[in-house]
Simulated scan of single mutants.
Amino acid sequence: MTRKTLFITGASTGIGAATARAAVEHGWNVGLFARSEDKLATLCDELGAHALALPGDATSLEDQETAMARLAEHFGDVDAAFANAGTGLSAAGTRQGDPEEWEAMIRLNVMGVLWTAKAASAYFVKNRGHLLLTGSAAGRTHIKGSVYSASKWFVHGYAGNLAEEFREWGARVTVIAPGMVDTPFFEEAKPDKLKPEDVARSVIFALGADPRANVREVFVMPVN
């Protein structure tokens, strides 16, 4: 069976790296997109011939378009994309929040997602592809003063709107909405929370749905 190809942003660590491992195990090629060239190279060495390192900045449409073009040239197409790159804030709330941090977060959590969708749409309009986005439990509830939560509300709303647009081409859209995950996103370890591998399995589940079915949201929470 011919391997399909998945483009992943934020692929060097955490959910992105775990998804890359799971995807290769389940028969996919992967394009690993992130700013950290060293970490991408290490992960590519681990995954072998079915992975391609694509250093770049998710806040740049040009970088994402160039990376997807390289991936398509290398493996033949871009069949799915996972807009996973994201960041949080060091100061919570509006009064205490840092406007420069807000701008940096919006560039990644909002504009970076838009750029992945825009770049991938050029392939999906032809191949009935699949776009996945990392949302959050924080994007399904109101959290006192949280600008981060609001950025994830955007992801959830945009994913639904994209699903309506992409279905015109037979393409699919899924938002993956985890609760707290034990990743480098947090300064302190969260050993009793979800692991990146739990989220990666959710991605594989959505990708593996019958082509007639679009799993529009996977909402996964830690038991504790």
Rank of each mutant, 00 (worst) to 15 (best):
131 L>M: 13
128 R>V: 04
133 L>V: 14
171 A>K: 03
220 V>C: 01
213 A>N: 11
143 I>C: 03
202 S>Q: 10
210 D>S: 07
177 A>K: 02
135 G>Q: 09
133 L>K: 00
137 A>S: 11
144 K>D: 08
212 R>F: 00
198 D>A: 12
220 V>R: 07
129 G>H: 06
200 A>R: 13
196 P>I: 04
170 G>V: 06
172 R>A: 02
134 T>A: 09
208 G>C: 05
220 V>W: 01
145 G>S: 09
130 H>A: 10
169 W>S: 11
170 G>W: 12
144 K>Q: 06
193 K>M: 15
168 E>P: 00
162 L>W: 01
122 A>S: 06
206 A>N: 12
129 G>D: 13
217 E>R: 09
178 P>V: 13
178 P>C: 12
182 D>Q: 08
180 M>Y: 06
200 A>S: 15
216 R>S: 13
154 F>I: 06
172 R>T: 01
160 G>V: 05
220 V>I: 15
177 A>T: 08
220 V>N: 02
165 E>K: 04
148 Y>P: 00
218 V>F: 02
204 I>E: 11
166 F>H: 05
190 K>I: 06
209 A>E: 14
173 V>M: 03
174 T>E: 10
202 S>V: 03
143 I>Q: 14
122 A>R: 10
166 F>M: 12
169 W>N: 10
130 H>D: 12
175 V>R: 01
178 P>F: 13
191 P>L: 06
126 K>E: 08
202 S>A: 14
145 G>C: 10
130 H>C: 07
129 G>N: 09
186 F>I: 01
137 A>G: 06
193 K>R: 12
205 F>P: 08
136 S>I: 06
155 V>Y: 01
192 D>E: 09
118 K>F: 00
211 P>N: 09
177 A>Q: 09
127 N>G: 12
188 E>Q: 14
161 N>C: 15
143 I>F: 08
133 L>Y: 00
138 A>G: 10
119 A>D: 08
194 L>G: 10
133 L>M: 13
214 N>F: 03
129 G>K: 07
143 I>W: 06
198 D>V: 08
128 R>G: 10
120 A>G: 04
208 G>T: 04
182 D>P: 13
178 P>R: 15
125 V>E: 15
195 K>D: 02
134 T>Y: 01
135 G>M: 13
216 R>M: 11
132 L>R: 15
174 T>L: 15
175 V>A: 12
123 Y>V: 03
208 G>I: 05
219 F>A: 05
129 G>T: 05
209 A>Q: 15
169 W>C: 07
178 P>H: 13
146 S>V: 15
207 L>N: 05
208 G>Y: 00
210 D>A: 12
124 F>W: 03
172 R>V: 01
